[in-house]
Design a protein around this nucleic acid. Structure first.
Lengths: 154, 154
DNA sequence: AATTTGGTTCTCAAAATTATGAACCAAAGA
DNA sequence: TCTTTGGTTCATAATTTTGAGAACCAAATT
């Protein structure tokens, strides 16, 4: 992965932009891109810094963020001080479930809104309730979908 | 809605923070909060500006953004030049489907990554493929889920 | 025609984000 | 012990985002 082809660079940028749109800083997005495009599943800190031409600090911070987000992990080898970072491809299911958690959080806020509103506008409450129930429906069904996926796989 | 209670203000802030975390600017988030908490389903531009203590320009820009995102709409009444803005509670389903579209877009990038990688690392390709297929699975199943919801409703 | 109303657009300042380079630090090697 | 390696943290600079205020504009009113 020392040298990247033009095509690889372009693809990395596209993945970078995708991740930026998901709320990650640019460098963070490019690292994800690199890890997906790479021939090898794990790249060292140094390789990441050099192939992307970014500062060590930017790399360090981005890698920590990505670990917190459970998007990457790293492996080590005894007798080798380097860390080898790779995309965490496995439990993406988890992420989806977490997303549903945040949706459910918002539906709780909507419920509060309805309570606070009392009965000054029942029609409004009803329309908000519909949305609440849709969110709750999703939160219920998506984990079930995951089970279906896991079952189809095995 | 001229005056807000302390509780209402707090709830608006929470909703604002939720929307910020979804990638919207603070003012935009607060407007959504206000529209959900409000007694009336529609508030005028002026009311929004005054109850939130924001500038007209901030309100104007935020409202346009929210319309583009299909999160709000406004109604007018003939003989009244004002616009009355309200949360668009209906087609939230649409939004979910759109989200899936972006997921599918990323899975296309992952496919490209696999192609570019060729067969230098088949195991990597296989692991990436699994993720691709999970994304595609979601994109297929979520619209079906929506149908189920709509059916249960009616 | 002049003024008011409802809102948009422009300019700019403040604040937040992002990334750099240098200093730093612990572990390993000489 | 001194140096190198692998990476983190700190201070700061550059960029971007956000929002205020004034100028502006079209439609309605006087």
């Amino acid at each position: 992965m020392a040298q990247l082809t033009q095509e690889q660079r372009q693809l990395i940028e596209k993945m970078g932009i995708y991740h930026e749109q998901q709320g990650f800083p640019p460098v963070t997005g490019r690292i994800m891109g690199l890890l997906y495009v790479s021939d090898r599943p794990h790249l060292s800190f140094e390789e990441i810094v050099e192939t992307l031409n970014i500062s060590k600090s930017a790399a360090s911070n981005a890698l920590q963020l990505l670990q917190q987000m459970h998007l990457i992990e790293y492996t080590t080898y005894s007798g080798d001080r380097k860390r080898y970072f790779g995309a965490l491809l496995e439990n993406w299911h988890e992420e989806v479930v977490n997303k549903m958690g945040s949706v459910l959080g918002f539906s709780k806020l909507l419920r509060q809104a309805n309570e606070l509103r009392g009965d000054v506008n029942p029609e409004m409450n009803e329309r908000v309730l519909e949305r609440i129930e849709f969110m709750e429906f999703l939160s219920r069904e998506v984990p079930a979908l995951l089970q279906k996926w896991l079952k189809e796989r095995n």
